[in-house]
Design a binder for these strands. Structure first.
Length: 481
RNA sequence: GGCGGCAUAGCCAAGUGGUAAGGCAGCGGUCUGCAAAACCGCUAUUCACCAGUUCGAAUCUGGUUGCCGCCUCCA
């Protein structure tokens, strides 16, 4: 089944045909490493993590490149404020970035280039642009002349004439057009600097992505992704640079994810409402964040609220509860089969994913399997025929395969619920030994058929936000979230 | 000023021509000592509004209203 992708360039869904059959080259703009990641970064990263996982599962040989922007005005400013070397700063935030990614169960891309490790490649591309007449040098700075690239604006759908009306762009009289952007910036005292044919300086932002994507994926590659906010000017400029320098189509499919809002407000540093990943992970299971984000289409805006997150937590609990139920009945799944034969499992899930990576619809398919499994187990409480057991095993395998693409259900149900209990207790400062003692007393009361006493204890526990479940195999408890 | 997006039940949300997925919450039932969990059933004759195209529209066209994003660093 063919995959269809919404291409920002055409504004339509198109059938995905890679440059080279069976292979996919994919480049996604990674973070500028001068501060902690927030949930907006998480959305972009998780969106493309799932896309890469799915393409791999479909059998493509995927080369996934995600860069680190580690030289930039914000980085220099922050390093100066702290009085440290930019490399010390960027190393620190790259390390933190990896901690966050691991916590979110994000797979590592194939290649993660840093801009400062690719100065030679960057200089070569700039050189080519100067040679072809698309770039000009002023006082050691090199600018790209947007008016000379006839397709300028084709990605963002704007024309230079229109933009000039309401432009809020610095007027730099030396530039030919106010929209000309820097390919190379001459260095000021105290800034990190590299030698170049135009004097000491550092690369501009846009050129690094043109240089690094081409270096690893070739002059034309399949997929380029990033947040919607990068469409203009960043990706527009990448196209201008790469297509002018190499004279070829730069990227075949442009994919852009929507924003995360917080309580219906745009998340921004100036509003002070951005949520740092490290903080959010303290309150919610990372997989609940994945489930929450993937429950909406990747191109739509999503509104982050505690209510919405708690719904995602409830959904995740439901799936883990089923896994726990199955494992209690049938034992551990054999070695957690992660081989993803997408042509066999969850037909509905694959159809959804084939249609522009519709994870929301895919998750609906996942929940339907969950309900079917629960029903099957309910209907066969006492005896399991071989037929039923086979059905359970196949549904179970399907769930795990879908989950592997969504990047959830990475823990055993026991660990998941145990962790949930302990963090829940921590939050409410309750002692688990006391709970165990009360539950033991309640079990004794129940055995003596002293229902009044048993219910009294249950009420006491409930007042402490502890919910009791008397299952056939024994009593378990949960912390109400 | 220019460009683009969105409006579906109490809430979240999928669905781009064939008669409304899924989740959360709620109600009734099964199960249970009673609960909880799970399951079953119910919960939008209707998809912001108006007009049009069509045998047929939430889905296409035109218009109206409301909300949002981008045009400046930004996932």
């Amino acid at each position: 089944m063919a995959i269809r992708i919404y291409n920002t360039l055409s504004g339509k869904k198109e059938v995905f045909e890679p440059v080279e059959s069976g292979k996919v080259g994919m480049y996604v703009c990674g973070p500028t490493v001068y501060d902690s990641c927030h949930i907006g970064h998480a959305r972009s990263i998780i969106t493309f993590d799932v896309i890469a996982r799915y393409l791999k599962a479909k059998g493509f040989d995927v080369t996934y490149v995600r860069n680190f922007t580690d030289i930039d005005d914000k980085i220099i400013n922050r390093a100066n404020e702290l009085g440290i070397d930019t490399r010390v700063l960027t190393d620190k935030y790259i390390k933190e970035f990896y901690e966050d990614m691991d916590a979110l169960n994000v797979e590592r891309p194939s290649i993660e280039p840093r801009a400062t490790d690719h100065i030679d490649q960057i200089i070569k591309v700039i050189d080519k642009l100067i040679e072809k007449g698309f770039a000009y040098i002023i006082d050691g700075d090199v600018y790209y002349s947007v008016e000379l690239f006839k397709d300028y604006g084709k990605l963002s759908g704007r024309r230079l004439e229109d933009m000039e009306a309401g432009a809020r762009v610095d007027i730099d009289k030396r530039k030919r057009s106010p929209f000309d952007f820097a390919l190379w910036k001459s260095s000021k005292p105290g800034e990190p600097t590299w030698d170049s044919p135009w004097g000491k300086g550092r690369p501009g932002w846009h050129i690094e992505c043109s240089a690094m994507s081409t270096e690893y994926l070739g002059e034309t590659f399949d997929i380029h992704g990033g947040g919607k906010d990068l469409i203009f000017p960043h990706h527009e400029n990448e196209i201008a640079q790469s297509e002018a320098a190499f004279g070829k189509t730069f990227v075949r499919y442009w994919i852009h994810n929507g924003f995360v809002n917080i309580n219906q407000e745009k998340m921004s540093k100036s509003l002070g409402n951005f949520i740092v990943l490290k903080e959010m992970i303290k309150h919610y299971h990372p997989e609940a964040l994945r489930l929450f984000l993937l429950s909406k289409h990747y191109r739509s805006p999503v509104d982050f609220t505690d209510d919405a997150m708690n719904e995602a937590v409830a959904g995740l609990d439901k799936i883990y509860s089923l896994l726990e139920r199955i494992e209690k009945q049938f034992g551990q799944v054999s070695g957690k089969d992660k081989t993803l034969d997408v042509n066999v499992f969850g037909g509905q899930f694959c159809l959804a994913m084939d249609d522009d990576f519709n994870t929301a619809l895919g998750i609906a398919a996942l929940f339907e399997v969950v309900r079917n499994m629960n029903r099957l187990l309910d209907e066969n409480k006492n005896s399991f025929s071989q037929d039923v057991e086979d059905k359970v095993h196949s549904g179970w395998a399907d769930i795990l395969k879908m989950a592997a693409i969504l990047g959830i259900l990475n823990e055993s149900p026991e660990d998941y619920f145990a962790k949930k209990r302990s963090t829940g207790l921590e939050k409410k400062s309750i002692n688990s030994e006391m709970i165990d003692k009360m539950i033991k007393e309640r079990i004794e009361a129940r055995e003596a058929k002293n229902w009044a006493r048993a219910d009294q204890i249950r009420k006491q526990l409930e007042d402490m936000s502890i919910i009791i479940e008397d299952r056939p195999e024994g009593t378990v408890w949960k912390v109400k979230s």
